[in-house]
Design a protein around this nucleic acid. Structure first.
Lengths: 127, 127
DNA sequence: TTATTATATGAATAACTGTTCATATGTTTA
DNA sequence: TAAACATATGAACAGTTATTCATATAATAA
């Protein structure tokens, strides 16, 4: 038995607006398709990393060539400290990897997946 | 004539660390491949929108079904005002579109491109 | 018209974030 | 060993942001 589309309020938690879309089958379908709360938080955190121009620039530079911290700072005209702080964020999210060579630390993209993501975003904004 | 790898300081702006990577050809190559400053800022702003759990949730719900503001609020257990503010952000970045039906406003994803981006992010974090 | 309902929005606030500054760590060279 | 250099990091500060609250707008119903 299909419930009445306009009056299915009593047993639903979603009972504040009385429109068609407040319909258990749709609501349940949506809820089932939703990833777990933690996954959603992680996904937001992942994108948060891309949501800063400095980090975007670093990722673009590293997509061209591995580079040391000092050169990144010079290339982007920013302080070594600022770059280092942002590299830490990128490192924590596993977007970049690094290797040490004497005093110098070289950073590079952790995988080419990152470039695909950047390209996809670029595609969207240039429409 | 290739400049000396260890001593190309004098005419370069990138002259604080004296490593191999401070090399004009590499630097120029990287600079040429860099998108324009404004594009980078736009790209960061674009990703910034994905960098919030509430907006991510809204996008996931809308990827399943168009939905009115009130139902989104109920489904996500948040205030109508909070949802409305976030929908405005999503609208401004052209991630969602809407249609009015009487008092109700239905939101939906502006294109399926968005789902691809979400899927790609999800793929990265589940490794 | 007035009342009701759905949505939008401005202001205020609390939490978060990116940079700077000072300094610490780690490596190499003298 | 000490000095120099590249990088990392904690604290502080300024700017940003997400939510709440109150209220405005818009459409419908009475």
């Amino acid at each position: 038995m299909e419930p009445d589309l306009k009056n299915n309020k009593p047993e639903s938690d979603f009972d504040q607006c009385d429109f068609i879309c407040v319909h258990e089958s749709v609501v349940n379908q949506v809820l089932n398709a939703m990833p777990k709360e933690q996954e959603l938080l992680d996904l937001a955190d992942f994108y948060k990393v891309f949501g800063d121009a400095t980090r975007i620039k670093i990722l673009y530079v590293l997509s061209q060539s591995e580079m040391c911290v000092c050169d990144l700072a010079n290339l982007l005209q920013m302080s070594q400290s600022a770059i280092s702080h942002q590299l830490r964020v990128l490192k924590q999210m596993r977007l970049v990897k690094f290797r040490r060579d004497g005093k110098t630390v070289f950073y590079s993209l952790s995988d080419s997946h990152i470039e695909t993501i950047l390209a996809q975003g670029m595609e969207h904004i240039s429409e």
